[in-house]
């Protein structure tokens, strides 16, 4: 796309050979720059206004003891950060986020993969099944949270169903039990986001050539072997991008938790995002909340960098890092 100075491109004739100074290449490169500025400008401006500037401001506020209303004059250095590091509630929040990350990968990944493999086969009502599984993903988080809050009430539909099935002992205080609440939330998260994984994997499965599967069959590979040694390796890039999206989503978990439990009971389901909103806006400690926000950003950013560097390197190679040929 862009003219390059790569030493490989020796085929371009030296500019000095041309008779006119204002070469067509020169004019078009100026024009091209104009085009780039025109097309990228608005996006860059929006990105700077709504992403970069607020991030920088949060970093700045995090160095102050500030309630968001009075003057910004109590500079306290990194005190907010040391306070967060020693705050048992913030630590609990990090722990809950980590738990959701691990559970997502360990539980949701196999589940979504299995369902995608199933739905990729010819079976009756496949379109309907796909739609049913994908529907929750389309629902707004707020709607999901309000609906599940009703379902998980002590005398709500879920417990009533369990009782009617003779499983009274399975009925739980899903959101009121401090030991259980984070797992209840995880079930809702899984219900909501499973469809996304399935659709992603179904798309990936379309990229698995039938010829390979047929060849494997001819070679005597069983269904399990075909899945394990042909389908899964070819699905690798899709799985890796799903894990990436899932971990980032789990780290930034907010809406569902905030509406269903507000991080309670007694901080049993607090996440980094609910913590920073609670401290920032409920307690009016904008400085401290900003520090928590910066920490959440750093954790997510470091994960994203490391993951791209070490796990997704092969997937993005060729596409981004080096020109082929």
């Amino acid at each position: 796309m862009v003219t390059t100075t790569s030493p490989r491109q020796v085929a371009v004739p030296p500019v000095g050979d041309r008779p006119q100074r204002r070469s067509p290449t020169g004019r078009s490169s100026a024009r091209r720059r104009g085009e780039i500025a025109l097309f990228l400008g608005p996006a860059l401006l929006l990105y700077a206004t709504f992403v970069i500037v607020p991030m920088v401001l949060a970093g700045y506020y995090s160095l102050f003891n500030w309630n968001g209303l009075g003057p910004l004059d109590q500079f306290i250095g990194i005190d907010n950060y040391t306070r967060a590091a020693g705050d048992p509630v913030f630590r609990a929040a990090v722990g809950h986020n980590a738990l959701i990350v691990v559970l997502s990968v360990v539980v949701q990944l196999p589940l979504a993969l299995a369902l995608a493999l199933l739905l990729n086969r010819r079976l009756r009502g496949r379109a309907i099944l796909r739609m049913v599984l994908f529907a929750p993903y389309v629902l707004a988080e707020v709607v999901t949270a309000v609906a599940w809050q009703l379902i998980l009430q002590p005398s709500g539909p879920l417990n009533t169903l369990l009782e009617n099935m003779g499983l009274e002992s399975w009925a739980q205080l899903w959101l009121a039990d401090r030991d259980l609440v984070i797992y209840s939330l995880f079930i809702v998260i899984t219900w909501k986001y499973l469809g996304f994984g399935i659709v992603l994997f179904l798309a990936g499965l379309q990229g698995v050539p039938n010829e390979l599967l047929e060849a494997a069959t001819v070679d005597g590979a069983s269904a399990w072997h075909r899945t394990r040694y042909v389908v899964l390796p070819l699905l690798g890039p899709t799985i890796r991008i799903w894990i990436f999206l899932s971990v980032i989503g789990a780290l930034q978990l907010f809406d569902l938790v905030w509406i269903m439990t507000k991080g309670g009971p007694s901080n049993a389901s607090v996440t980094m995002a609910t913590f920073l909103i609670d401290r920032g806006f409920e307690r009016s400690q904008i400085g401290y909340g900003s520090a928590a926000a910066v920490l959440l950003f750093i954790i997510s950013f470091v994960f994203a960098l490391l993951y791209q560097r070490y796990v997704m390197r092969r997937d993005t190679e060729g596409a981004l890092t080096r020109r082929v040929g």
């Binding site: 009703l150 009430q153 002590p154 005398s155 709500g156 205080l173 959101l175 009121a176 039990d177 401090r178 609440v181 439990t261 309670g264 009971p265 007694s266």
Partner: peptide, 15 residues
């Protein structure tokens, strides 16, 4: 108190 009062909202909805 009612069962599960820790998760009961004060004013939102019949529950």
């Amino acid at each position: 108190f009612q069962e599960g009062f820790l998760a009961t909202p004060a004013q939102e909805g019949a529950a």
